[in-house]
């Protein structure tokens, strides 16, 4: 049924694919990365905290979410977020959260677990002498974390963050299971409407490939540049 590669279908679909689909995918990736790094750092600090309860809570959260497939987590949060929002805001009925923000929340909460592990190993990889030295200088624990530990750890982690962001970028395609129009969703819609599977899926694969490949090369170059010589 598919004879030859019909480039025209792809060209006609470009505005829809990029303005609707890719812009959704990229915004979702960027916002979830920022959210994931912030929340992930918080989780990592909690995990390394002296307070047992705090570290147990963070460890539990991270371990549970890391044991679950993202697809299941996406379903969970899509149905649960309105209740969580209601619970947090004290509203009288579940709060409507549109699919975009629901996805941002889902990916932030999920990817934070992976960012947390990166930050944790980043912090732990610093020699103990660093924090001992700053405490000897009279810094509080919090000041040590903010002025000494995190800046160095972050520098080491930058390439890993970028690598995780590439994974996140690819993972966002899973919102397809909820019929949300991300880049893959847009491609699938055109594919099904025009019966042009081959063209649309191959094109989508190529776009993901090029973006991920370029970004991973950038990550590798970054790794060489930021490496702290010890």
């Amino acid at each position: 049924m598919l004879t030859g590669f019909d480039l025209q279908t792809v060209i006609n679909a470009l505005p829809y694919l990029f303005f609707t689909g890719m812009s959704f995918t990229l915004t979702l990736t960027v916002l979830s990365t920022i959210g994931g790094i912030l929340f992930g750092t918080m989780l990592a600090i909690m995990r390394l905290s002296r307070y047992r309860a705090m570290s147990a809570m963070a460890a539990g959260y991270v371990n549970v979410l890391r044991s679950l497939p993202l697809v299941l987590v996406i379903f969970w949060f899509y149905f649960l977020v309105p209740f969580l929002a209601q619970w947090l805001t004290g509203a009288s009925s579940p709060v409507r959260v549109d699919p975009f923000w629901s996805s941002v929340i889902t990916f932030t909460l999920f990817e934070a677990c992976y960012f947390c592990e990166i930050v944790r190993s980043g912090i732990q990889s610093l020699p103990k002498g660093q924090s001992l030295a700053s405490q000897a200088l009279g810094m509080t624990e919090r000041q040590t974390m903010i002025y000494v530990v995190l800046p160095q750890a972050m520098r080491n982690m930058l390439p890993l963050f970028l690598t995780q962001t590439i994974i996140l970028f690819q993972d966002t395609s899973l919102v397809y299971v909820l019929s949300i129009t991300d880049f893959l969703g847009a491609a699938a819609k055109i594919a099904q409407r025009d019966g042009r599977l081959l063209e649309m899926y191959v094109f989508a694969a190529a776009v993901y490939f090029v973006i991920s490949l370029l970004a991973s090369h950038a990550a590798r170059r970054l790794q060489k540049r930021v490496a702290i010589i010890r």
């Binding site: 049924m1 590439i166 893959l184 191959v202 490939f209 991920s212």
Partner: peptide, 23 residues
């Protein structure tokens, strides 16, 4: 390695399932 690492799993799934039999 580059091909299978840089395309999202779901897209690969569709390529195997929908596209491969057509070509």
């Amino acid at each position: 390695v580059e091909i299978f690492r840089n395309i999202p799993l779901l897209v690969q799934m569709f390529l195997w399932y929908f596209v491969l039999p057509e070509i």
